[in-house]
């Protein structure tokens, strides 16, 4: 574990805590895409099946359990909680997320390291995570005026991805035989999707204005 990896994991954890704070405390999920949250729940459910088959560290297992629990909790809140579900922008959150799942699955069947059940699902989760933020970014663009918590949530998610890239560069130079092409390429695609958002986030932060994305 290097400092970039830890910073990445902590940004990821923090982004989810921010979202849970918004949903649980303010009882609002305005501006949050349920489509993206459902995709993340699927990403974690297909990637972390290995908690049953192998052990890496207590840290690793606890983080996986947290990501699984939190993603399904957020989806539950947005779908079924009496108060929270009323604040969901259903009419704006129209991205057809099902159309992302099938291509990612087909790609995972074609491009993977080993053709085993767990490996294909793990690869699928990487491809799906790369594009899972798209419904959220589309929703942000539609809502234009983004509330602070939602903006910070997306910012810390993007920070998590950026730290992971630094972590891969660091590991490439400090470890032997550390090549993970599939992880790297899908990670790069994922981080690139945040570039536009980052630009407007930093701009609004420097001008101390509310985050506004162009139409």
């Amino acid at each position: 574990m290097n400092i970039f990896r830890l910073a990445g994991d902590m940004s990821h954890l923090f982004s989810i805590l921010l979202l849970l704070l918004k949903i649980h405390t303010i009882k609002s999920c305005a501006g949050v895409s349920l489509k993206t949250q459902e995709l993340y729940a699927l990403v974690f459910a297909t990637r972390y099946l290995d908690i049953f088959t192998g052990y890496i560290s207590l840290y690793n297992t606890l983080m996986k359990m947290f990501f699984l629990w939190s993603s399904f909790t957020i989806v539950w809140y947005m779908r079924y909680h009496n108060v929270v579900r009323r604040s969901y922008d259903k009419d704006q959150d129209t991205f057809r997320h099902y159309f992302l799942i099938l291509p990612c699955f087909i790609l995972a069947l074609l491009v993977h390291e080993k053709f085993t059940f767990l490996e294909v699902l793990w690869t699928f989760s990487l491809y799906l995570e790369a594009v899972a933020i798209l419904p959220q970014l589309v929703l942000l663009q539609r809502t234009r005026n983004v509330d602070n918590l939602t903006g910070h949530y997306v910012f810390f998610l993007g920070a998590y991805r950026s730290f992971y890239i630094l972590n891969w560069i660091y590991r490439y130079f400090t470890e032997q035989n550390y090549y993970k092409w599939i992880t790297w390429i899908s990670g790069l695609v994922q981080t690139a999707l945040y570039a536009d958002f980052f630009y407007y986030y930093v701009k609004s932060w420097r001008n101390s204005e509310r985050l506004q994305l162009p139409a």
């Binding site: 990896r5 994991d9 990821h12 290995d50 890496i56 560290s57 690793n60 983080m63 996986k64 990501f67 793990w122 992971y164 972590n167 590991r171 400090t174 470890e175 032997q176 035989n177 550390y178 992880t183």
Partner: peptide, 10 residues
């Protein structure tokens, strides 16, 4: 040398 574990990342 640091040992690399398969899929030790989250």
């Amino acid at each position: 040398e640091v040992e690399t574990d398969e899929k030790d990342e989250l």
